[in-house]
Design a protein around this nucleic acid. Structure first.
Length: 269
DNA sequence: ATAATAACCTGAGGGC
DNA sequence: TGCCCTCAGGTTATTA
């Protein structure tokens, strides 16, 4: 689940409960994530959490000394619950806080990550090469059209490339291309600037709408309070086996780069 | 440099 | 019930 809207929802959900809190105790039940959890994490008791921000699909937790870089992978989620409440299955990490609450990280598939970074996390080797945020001024039609020049990759694969723009995952790539009227199979370099401008707007609109609904829950994702994301009901094409709401044509499914894509052959050219 | 593929995991759901 | 297969939000590393 965790694309940009889900990570943003998580960030907003946990921030009020963890910001300014002292870490009383760290529970590491499973450290074999995408990468081994940084050993420094085990010794964080006594540190304080200054604040939480998001960059791409990473959650950045500033501490009084250094920072934590979290990633939710494919199945990760975070909840804030009273310290002492029973651990859910696959609840790998728990930070017990001074306010009697615990931040609990659950990730059945273990594609997520928790890394400690002593200095600027934005300069971390995973964050440094990332493209612009979709809501940044820098991400505009000029930029995206420029990056598309000479690229034969499909536009769907292209906008999911975090070096081009961050935060657009498999669900919202299909949804944004539907909104923009562009087939996911089109070569990035062959799309007119006007249509690229439409795509930029569609990416922003799709992500904004999804954030407003708390993201999309397919299976594992929950908000920090345990509720699912409600954008699933607003999906137009993703996982849709029916017809396009706009023109009635049957939604089509295909696989691109090992990922499912969905589009309307009537509306998307 | 760009593009395509394999790899890392667990669980849910369908078919038989 | 149970077994086998396919598929699922991401992204890095490896290979052409």
């Amino acid at each position: 689940m965790p694309e940009l809207p889900e990570v943003e929802t998580t960030c907003r959900g946990i921030a009020p409960h963890v910001s300014g809190q002292r870490i009383e105790r760290v529970l590491l039940r499973e450290t074999r994530l995408r990468w081994p959890v940084s050993p420094e994490v085990a010794d964080l008791a006594g540190s304080s959490i200054v604040g939480v921000t998001r960059r791409a699909k990473y959650l950045l937790m500033a501490l009084d000394q250094g920072s934590l870089i979290w990633h939710l992978g494919m199945s990760g989620s975070m909840r804030v619950l009273p310290t002492g409440s029973p651990a859910a299955s696959h609840e790998h990490i728990e930070l017990q806080l001074g306010n009697g609450l615990s931040l609990k990280f659950r990730d059945p598939r273990r594609f997520g990550a928790l890394l400690y970074c002593a200095d600027d996390p934005l300069q971390h080797r995973l964050l440094q090469p990332l493209g612009p945020e979709p809501f940044a001024d820098e991400f505009n039609a000029d930029y995206l059209y420029g990056r598309c020049r000479g690229r034969s990759a499909s536009i769907k694969t292209f906008i999911m490339n975090s070096h081009i723009v961050v935060g657009v995952g498999n669900i919202y790539a299909s949804e944004a291309l539907y909104m923009a009227g562009i087939r996911p199979t089109r070569a990035a370099g062959g799309i007119s600037k006007v249509r690229i401008a439409r795509l930029v707007a569609a990416i922003r609109a799709t992500l904004t709408a999804a954030i407003a609904k708390g993201g999309t829950t397919l299976q594992d994702f929950t908000q920090a309070d345990g509720k699912p994301g409600y954008f699933r009901h607003a999906l137009q094409v993703y996982a849709n086996k029916g017809d396009c709401q706009a023109c009635g044509t049957a939604i089509r499914h295909l696989v691109q780069g090992q990922r499912s894509s969905y589009y309307c052959p009537g509306c998307q050219t």
